[in-house]
Design a protein around this nucleic acid. Sequence first.
DNA 1: AAATGTGACAACCGCCGCGCT
DNA 2: AAGCGCGGCGGTTGTCACATT
Length: 250
Amino acid sequence: MGRQPCCDKVGVKKGPWTSEEDKKLMNFIMSNGQCCWRTVPKLAGLKRCGKSCRLRWTNYLRPDLKRGLLTHSEEQLVIDLHARLGNRWSKIASRLPGRTDNEIKNHWNTHIKKKLLKMGIDPVTHEPLAKQQLVSSSSSSSESAEQLPEPQQQLKESVVNNNDNNGNSSSSSPPTENSCSASGDGDESLILNSLWLDDTPLIDALWDTTPTSWLLDCQDFGIHDFGFNCFNETQSNAPQTLETEETKWH
DNA sequence: AAATGTGACAACCGCCGCGCT
DNA sequence: AAGCGCGGCGGTTGTCACATT
């Protein structure tokens, strides 16, 4: 005999939350704290599944949440962490204060993924698409027919090297990019250890000192057009960008 | 101005690991 | 020790808003 079910799916409301429901849930959590989600809907007077309440709270109602688009620095950080961790959105989110896994996942799927594809980078493996085509010539996928120009190859390599340095400044063997893909597992424990042991705030600290910001700098005009001058400019502007964009969103 | 297409985001679904009974 | 539910996670879908034709 285990526990009682989280909710008897009969009479459980679905769909978008109303402001009334939000208020009830918010009031309940604020006065009682987060505990035992199964009982929350009953005690808070909600006809929702406990799971739904938890999701609503963590993704929307939590007072420490930032709202609005991810900032430049956050986006860069997400890309870097994704290269290391794959689709482990909760792990990625844990490194971005005020952001939820759902939010980051959505942003990845709607923004970053497309940007990387546009730049000729596979959003799953973070490898240049042209390079992948050489390896697996059988794949005639039409996802992106763009060829990767030479300069980007060099830049991409700098990303790889940079990632290695960031996460593994210690003597442990640096992870390969393939080991970071959603399916790959190889040295991930090492990667994770190095990430979790590193308590320095990743935003700004990680990216402002690295050449990887080229990824985002190139996003708007396409890979064929970028110039290298943008690096220094953007790096020096990054902190301001972060600040201004954050204040822009309530 | 209306119809259609596209993008963005909130929410749901199903699976998994852990801990409780 | 085994079974079961809870909480958490990642993938997917639904819906709304905005852009384009």
